[in-house]
Design a protein around this nucleic acid. Sequence first.
DNA 1: TTGAAAGCGTTACCAC
DNA 2: GTGGTAACGCTTTCAA
Lengths: 327, 327
Amino acid sequence: MSTSITLKELSKLLGVSISTISKALNDSHEISESTKQRIREMAELHNYQPNKLAVSLKSGKTRTIGVIIPSIQNYFFAQVLFGIEKVIADSDYNIIVSITHESLEKETKAVTTFSNGLVDGIIVALAEETQLARESSHFDTALNLKKPVVMFDRVFKDFPCDKVQVNDYQVVFDAVQQLQARGRKHIILVSTIQNLSVGKSRAKGYADAVSKEVQLEGTPETIDKVLGDYMSKHSVDGIIALDEDASLTALSVTKKLKKSIPEEVAIIGYASEKMAMNLSPTLTTLNQHGGIIGEKTAKILLEKLKIGAKTLTNEAVETTLVSRETF
Amino acid sequence: MSTSITLKELSKLLGVSISTISKALNDSHEISESTKQRIREMAELHNYQPNKLAVSLKSGKTRTIGVIIPSIQNYFFAQVLFGIEKVIADSDYNIIVSITHESLEKETKAVTTFSNGLVDGIIVALAEETQLARESSHFDTALNLKKPVVMFDRVFKDFPCDKVQVNDYQVVFDAVQQLQARGRKHIILVSTIQNLSVGKSRAKGYADAVSKEVQLEGTPETIDKVLGDYMSKHSVDGIIALDEDASLTALSVTKKLKKSIPEEVAIIGYASEKMAMNLSPTLTTLNQHGGIIGEKTAKILLEKLKIGAKTLTNEAVETTLVSRETF
DNA sequence: TTGAAAGCGTTACCAC
DNA sequence: GTGGTAACGCTTTCAA
């Protein structure tokens, strides 16, 4: 590795000690204006940049926060990341992000790498595998190393760290009730996120709101057939779709069966605003406000890093029903 | 900062020198099996993890590559990142990513931060501001610090680094010709990326293929009105839309004007597969194969890092026309 | 087979 | 006002 010119080299060039250079560049009052001037000029000339690694190693502070998300293809995480960046950009911290692709192994590696010198704190949404395996020991490690952890959206309920969550249960419960209030009797649930904590919470909200529950589950690839089979044999007048793939499928299957939307079948789903607005008919969604979640999460971590508070917060961000054409 | 137990502490615990510990943990042949054993056990017990910062500082290698992209909301970059990750995951390198939000300042900061000790090499797609300002000096800095740079998609044509590009000009040129071959006479162009190099190349491909060019430009917010105004006053039977926003607008405006698609107006656009497939009618797109671009880019950098080749490559990845309902 | 010491690039304490 | 030295945690050369 070649790095930019070092203090040592500048020191030789100027015939001044390393410590003087260091102090001058850090604008210490101990150094005279004239020497500061000389040193700055030479540093400028050679485009001196302090070596981040050395500074971090010495100070024990990296001024960097690590963000770990399961996927980047998912609009929700993209939004959250956007919110995080917005807040961090106004601070003197940097961000580095790692994507786990839902893998526990990758997540563990990321947490370990991050914890071991790279970052001062961690923001994370758990990978699917992690939630399935209920494996949280890698976060214990981070905590032991005094790296504050903030989890958002996909969290371990009992893990001792700050959390920013969505009221998934209540939101879906309410949505189903609204469907019922407008006369829907046969409301079914469609999901490809049954393994995620958020998927479970949402499904529970649904289950508690209906008298007879029908939960259709699958992968993004199979859910199409599952739903098609069911709808061609049973009457359905309302669909709650828990994720973007399920929502898209709900729409396409219903259209394929020539059911009118929302007259015969009403649909409430999850999708990015852009997607929802450009579908035909436009999709009524449960908007999670990823940007706000990101901002809150980042603010909490920043606060913790600055004042080192010990109390754990557990914030909730409201989800709102955005009415469009499907309900 | 608190890090995990250090060699020094292990050394005290075991009554062995630091260097012995280091060697043992690195499985050096200099150390006897028995001591290795003892040391490993103790390290295990205390969950020793080498401090990344210290290792990097010492070795001059970070085993990390930095990825700098303009946006994460853009499906194309998400795909590319996916491809990069796929390749890097199979190596012993790590990835850190920084998002510039199209800002030159952020890009400069990212390149500088990355170059100064954090990474061994950089993958980048230029920010819009960077391309507008034609500012490349921050990459000179990176190169001076011996950090190989690979640019993809949005590149500086003349900058001396490896590049992975798309044959933007040719693809749009061909697409227009296909439209013409099927009798379209009034083909217009819609774009919100006129400031980007790729936007310019694509527009040139269009311009060179038609006899009378009509280029409609705007922002994602204004393009709707621009196109609506034009189409209500002029006859149009084919639209080339250069980005997702333009494509969505092309579709919605055409539908709003009650023109049949593709009979009266054919549309070829750019959009994610998921978006294109779920639109009504489904959108015929120019697919850039972001995943493949990402893989190629990552492989080139890895190669450079490993064997330190000096020749510069300039690879092209094919874009393909995916026929759907709009043409 | 083991250990001491130098050095990676900084910062900070303490002399002068 | 300036400079020497130690220290952050690690690897590596050289001696023992």
